[in-house]
Amino acid sequence: MTKKTNPVPAEVQPAAGLFGALPRRDFLRYTGAGLALTSLVLTGCDDDDNNEVDPNADTVNVGSGDTGVLNYAYALEQLEAAFYAQVIAGGTGTYFASLGANSAERQILSDLALHEKAHRDFFKNAIPAGSIIKDLAPDFSTIDFNVGRRAAGAPAGTKLGVLDAAMAFEDLGVAAYNGAGRYITNPVNLALAGKIVSVEARHAALIRDLMSYNTFVDNDVVELFTPTGSASTPGVGSGSGLERSKKPSEVIVVANQFLQTGSKLNVSGLG
């Protein structure tokens, strides 16, 4: 596994430059060519060959362009998969074991563990070996695996419960995928990200409903719309009904709290 320690230079992002130079109608015609090109980028944009000392030497640079986005997604999926695996394994806490054998919550967490494992394994297999980031070492020391949810009004610094953490990871994943779509140049990769993000959103909504019913959408994750005048007149009001997507630089502030030194993410190549 290659650890990427240096930003990928801008000149290895030809696809973005190509599409950026084309008017829309031409883009559609060039899609075929773009696909071929970005496929090459995917395999060609691999680890940097220089070995200069880097100020971010202890971070994991996801890279840039489509490979960068795929690595970024892979990093977040590694985090989620590791988290649910630890919930279910039970070695560090008893919350999951305390759930009834036929409880819905047990089945939900089990399903989520399978889905996130599938996502992680998929990226691991799909990203070319030369450009894939290493296996990340998570740091779940701020999560209490004995507890479902933190007590309301718990003082700052209180560990997250299993559901609190699940909600944080799922919401973060949705915001991250949505915010990273703009850096993808190959439509096939965009479609792949789309296939995953809606499943993450389904997860997030259900975990939120378990935490507090009817918060499947709420103002912390979606800019809620408030009608002015009759609610039956569409499109008139404040707000947008849009997910609050996050830039990669915003996402890693949260994600890095759950990663050990040496596994913290560097997304300087994205955006």
Partner: peptide, 26 residues
């Protein structure tokens, strides 16, 4: 994929897409 020429419009559409998925889950 048809919105990739306009990154802001693409992100807006993605931000609708995930909200629809939240709705469906509920």
């Amino acid at each position: 994929p048809f919105l990739m020429t306009n990154k802001d419009v693409l992100e807006t559409a993605l931000n609708i897409h995930s909200v629809e998925a939240r709705h469906c889950s509920h």
